[in-house]
Design a binder for these strands. Structure first.
Length: 618
DNA sequence: ATAGGCGTTT
């Protein structure tokens, strides 16, 4: 038997985009007498009872007066069977409570169906479809699936509507594969089939499936509504597929959907994340040109984007635009500003934004927390850090937890660091590379380098977090606690195993060799890293130069110094001073480097950034 | 349930 119900008439397709049930209200019920139900189902009451007609109101009041039993359900089905009568939302919603009770009273759907039969209800496809809809509306998903299975048991071929509902149910109970199977099995897909599938796939961020379903949808002549389009675009942007995101926008424009300020904002930040600040700016200009006015979100994206690309002046220009427009910064913009000021080393300004939150009636959140913790840590404002770490009620997430962990390690508060780690793993955080780096550091600092090494070995064997940062963390921590041989051993193993290493990894290894007084090996490693395509930076040179000065290795020092000059590497004042001190004892060296020394002297106390000054060499 | 924000190493 084929399941035919004519639920969704083609011309209604788009009109009813948002709800399955709205169709019920499209038809006015033909005047028919409710008492006919009684005549059909009982005997002898003819002519005695009043004869209310079959209207939504009458049906509803009758349902409400009835007990929660099979008879009421039967009555509901009977009404639905009448010509041109369609239940309204109220009736459906009422029935949720009824079937909920019936589900408890009767064991299994089959028993309910048996009961209905004994009441004279003919079990037609429509009955099961209605039952399915009630369960679906009542979020009783396991029963909905049961009804769907019974449909097949009765030999019915479910129609599109039933399959749409059951696909939705499968998505909702997280049976994605089954949901997609249902989707693929729908012979004639309608707008809802695509809309439901897309809405779930978007929520899950399943870009691959979104693409496939969207293509199918368009090929079959349907277009997503603006809401769904926005959601789809969001998935593309979050996945970093901005070019394809643009195609989606193109589709939106072609299908006459207006591109909202939300969409523009997404694209502006998308171009920044793509590494295309100029395109972001062009887009912003275009947006203004067509008369779409940017809002705080758009401006925030611009400020963040400019800061990421070191376009500090541009960022502050946008900030003054925000102020001149009288837009009150929200918590997101404040967080961006805290981050920006910190990055610029303007810790006092970052702190001012933080303390202004109360005045602005904004509540600090986990983003504020993570940024402030990091800011205070970099600026070594440990007093305020401690008060924030103890006083904030923000619930920790993985990122803010990692931020805090890192800071505890820096302060040297191993106890708190390990306590936090225990908390994070008890909370079932999906700990990541940041956490592992923090863990290894904390263990070493806490005087348990052997435990750290064991942990690290285990991580390697289980292939957890094999990024350069983690290798660097353990090697540096071992160097810092004087375990030079262990550090160098691990580093060599990284090289032989071809683990990913970056300039910092090499630099800390060189630091280890310098501290172990193995200066020749340190110099050799400097050459090796270049051969491996990893280019030393000023901190690498600072480390090796500092070692060479200590060992008074003038010849090697001069060679390295020439290298720095040729490469245009700028040294920090501390290192320059050491070099000058050593070489100025020798007449020949002074003449060789006189011009360099003079240049250094000219701007000895102004040129270099302060972060270099505060850090002791090595 | 359409946009913007947070954390590692020398």
């Amino acid at each position: 038997m084929l399941w035919r119900c004519n639920w969704v008439k083609p011309r209604k397709k788009i009109l009813n985009a948002f709800s399955f049930s709205s169709i019920h209200g499209q038809f006015s019920p033909k005047s028919r007498e409710i008492s006919e139900f009684s005549r059909e189902n009982t005997s002898g009451s003819r002519g005695v009872a009043p004869k209310p007609s079959l209207t939504h109101d009458n049906v509803y009041s009758r349902l409400r007066e009835s007990p929660y039993d099979l008879k009421t359900l039967n009555f509901f089905f009977w009404c639905a069977k009448q010509n041109n009568y369609f239940h309204d939302n109220r009736a459906f919603d009422h029935m949720v409570g009824v079937v909920e009770k019936l589900t408890r009273d009767y064991n299994g759907i089959d028993r309910i169906i048996e009961g209905l039969k004994t009441l004279g209800c003919v079990i037609k496809p429509r009955v099961l479809l209605l039952l399915l809809e009630i369960f679906w509306r009542g979020h009783i998903y396991d029963k909905a699936i049961e009804v769907y299975k019974s449909m097949n048991g009765f030999g019915y071929v479910p129609n599109t509507r039933a399959m749409n509902m059951i696909m939705d149910v499968h998505f909702k109970v997280n049976l994605v594969d089954q949901a997609l199977e249902v989707f693929e099995g729908i012979c004639v897909r309608n707008f809802f089939s695509f809309d439901i599938a897309l809405s779930h796939l978007c929520s899950r961020g399943d870009l691959v499936c979104v693409k496939i379903v969207l293509k199918m949808m368009i090929r079959e002549g349907f277009y997503p509504n603006s809401e769904r389009f926005g959601q789809i675009l969001g998935v593309f942007c979050r996945a970093g597929c901005f070019v394809q995101g643009f195609q989606v926008v193109g589709l939106m424009i072609c299908s006459g959907i207006s591109v909202s300020v939300h969409v523009w904002s997404m694209l502006v930040s998308g171009f920044f994340r793509l590494g295309e600040p100029q395109k972001a700016v062009d887009l912003f200009d275009k947006m203004i040109l067509i008369g779409c006015s940017p809002n705080l979100v758009t401006y925030t994206s611009l400020i963040k984007g400019f800061m990421d690309f070191g376009m500090v002046d541009e960022a502050f220009t946008v900030l003054s635009t925000v102020q001149s427009k009288g837009l009150a910064p929200d918590i997101v913009l404040c967080n961006v500003m805290i981050h920006a000021f910190t990055k610029l080393g303007r810790f006092e300004d970052a702190r001012k934004v933080f303390t202004s939150l109360k005045k602005r009636k904004l509540v600090a959140d986990r983003y504020t927390f993570a940024s402030m913790v990091s800011s205070l840590c970099v600026s070594r404002d440990f007093d305020l850090f401690t008060s924030i770490a103890n006083g904030t009620k923000t619930e920790l997430d993985l990122v803010s937890g990692n931020s805090l962990l890192n800071c505890f390690c820096k302060v040297g508060n191993t106890f708190e660091a390990l306590k936090l780690l225990r908390y994070m793993s008890n909370q079932d955080f999906a700990v990541d590379c940041y956490t592992f780096s923090g863990y290894l550091t904390a263990l070493c600092r806490g005087g348990a380098p052997d435990k750290a090494v064991n942990m690290y070995i285990r991580m390697i064997s289980e292939k957890i977090c094999l990024d350069a940062h983690v290798h660097t963390a353990i090697i540096d921590s071992l160097v810092e606690c004087g375990e030079y041989n262990a550090a160098i051993h691990l580093f060599n193993r990284c090289i032989s195993e071809k683990y990913p290493l970056d300039v910092v990894s090499y630099t800390v290894a060189i630091k280890g060799l310098v501290r172990a007084k193995r200066i020749d090996e340190a110099c050799a490693l400097l050459s090796e890293m270049k051969e491996a395509g990893v280019f030393p930076n000023r901190r690498t040179y600072r480390t090796i130069i500092s070692g060479l000065c200590e060992e008074k290795e003038n010849d090697k020092l001069k060679k390295i110094l020439w290298e720095c000059i040729e490469e245009g590497v700028k040294l920090d004042p501390n290192t320059k001073f050491k070099v000058f001190n050593l070489l100025s004892r020798y007449r020949r060296d002074v003449s060789e480097f006189r011009w360099v020394f003079e240049k250094w002297m000219e701007k000895f106390d102004v040129s270099d950034s302060c972060d270099e000054l505060s850090v002791s060499v090595g």
